[in-house]
């Protein structure tokens, strides 16, 4: 079983390599369409034309685009991720601090969204044909019509301003020291350092942003799961299970739900990818120090080395999460596994 999973994962990642190369080239070319000159923007106002030329040469901006791309790719492979034009720090440093924060946020949002979505889907299925289902249907329609970043603002208004229950700015209470970096994941590091106060502060700061992400995901899961439950409930094997005298409880959890879960798992794979997009503005709004904040700052300042790397990191994350979800799908579905 584990072997099968690893083999599938290996092949998935093998297939992901050309995609990554295509993505990196795409990003590179799009960014070179830029009308403004990033070098000019990073120089002080009094700089001369020679200063500019020198900087352009230093940054490699004077070469042709394919050349620039190959140089960048080569640097990337040799571990040189470049220097931020705006922050004037190695891009690798910026990304390695921001990445664990974004991952913590996405995973919490995903977990929360899946739990609420699956529970809601089951509830809708149980209430099918009645007023309860209609009500849940209307609520889910409404919830889907508000994007994550507006949920973020509404949550701040509700639980940060109107009823101040939860913190809504930053990653932890001001004045707290970042625990010594072992894994880079602050939640883990604070536990390792034995700083429970930091841990709880981190957790509290995670609640609102994670909820904002989860609210956008849950109704989708709910509806897809409900639809597949209804479909599977009409299948022959469910009827046959009933004719064997199994209890409705047993039929739902042993037969209907596992079969209905397959399309939901696919959906989660796609939506988890989209969720990384959702984090961008949510991070901006909560002042959460993750990749989203980083890329928005970089975009505002035309900081190409940062944009390039962060975009690539997002792609790696999406591909990784897709591969992980696909492995789960294959493990759950024997038809694909035993091929």
């Amino acid at each position: 079983m584990l072997l099968v999973a690893l083999r599938i994962l290996f092949f998935r990642l093998l297939v992901a390599v050309p995609t990554l190369i295509a993505v990196s080239a795409l990003v590179f070319v799009i960014l070179r369409l830029l009308p403004a000159d990033p070098a000019a923007m990073s120089l002080p106002p009094g700089a001369t034309a020679e200063d500019l030329a020198r900087l352009r040469a230093a940054l490699g901006l004077d070469r042709s685009i394919p050349e620039q791309y190959l140089i960048w790719l080569g640097d990337l492979l040799s571990g040189d991720f470049g220097i931020s034009i705006y922050f004037r720090r190695p891009v690798a440093d910026l990304v390695s601090t921001a990445l664990p924060n974004t991952l913590e946020l996405v995973l919490s949002g995903l977990l929360l969204g899946v739990i609420v979505g699956v529970a809601g889907g089951l509830l809708m299925f149980r209430a099918r044909g009645g007023r309860g289902e209609e009500a849940l249907d209307v609520v889910s329609s409404a919830m889907m019509s508000i994007p994550e970043f507006l949920w973020a603002l509404l949550l701040i208004l509700a639980f940060g301003v109107a009823v101040p229950l939860l913190p809504f700015i930053g990653r932890m209470a001001p004045g707290m020291m970042t625990p010594p970096g072992v894994t880079g994941f602050l939640l883990l590091d604070s536990l390792i350092a034995g700083r429970l106060d930091v841990f709880f502060s981190l957790l509290l700061h995670l609640v609102l942003p994670a909820v904002a992400l989860a609210i956008a995901l849950a109704p989708l899961i709910m509806r897809v799961l409900r639809a597949s439950l209804v479909e599977v409930a009409g299948d022959d094997f469910v009827t046959q299970a009933r004719l064997r005298g199994l209890s409705e409880q047993r039929i739902l959890f042993a037969h209907t739900l596992p079969n209905a879960a397959l399309p939901t798992i696919s959906l989660i794979g796609v939506q988890a990818g989209f969720m990384f997009g959702g984090t961008v503005l949510v991070e901006v709004i909560f002042g959460y120090p993750g990749l989203g904040n980083l890329i928005v700052d970089a975009v505002r300042n035309h900081d190409l080395p940062v944009i390039q790397l962060v975009a690539l990191v997002y792609c790696v994350l999406v591909l990784a999460i897709n591969a992980a979800v696909e492995v789960i799908y294959l493990l759950v579905n024997p038809r694909l596994r035993t091929h």
Partner: peptide
């Protein structure tokens, strides 16, 4: 007990 019409779909596809 019952013997169904469509044997291929009367067994849960996810279970041995």
């Amino acid at each position: 007990t019952f013997i169904p019409q469509e044997p291929l779909t009367a067994l849960d596809p996810l279970m041995t």
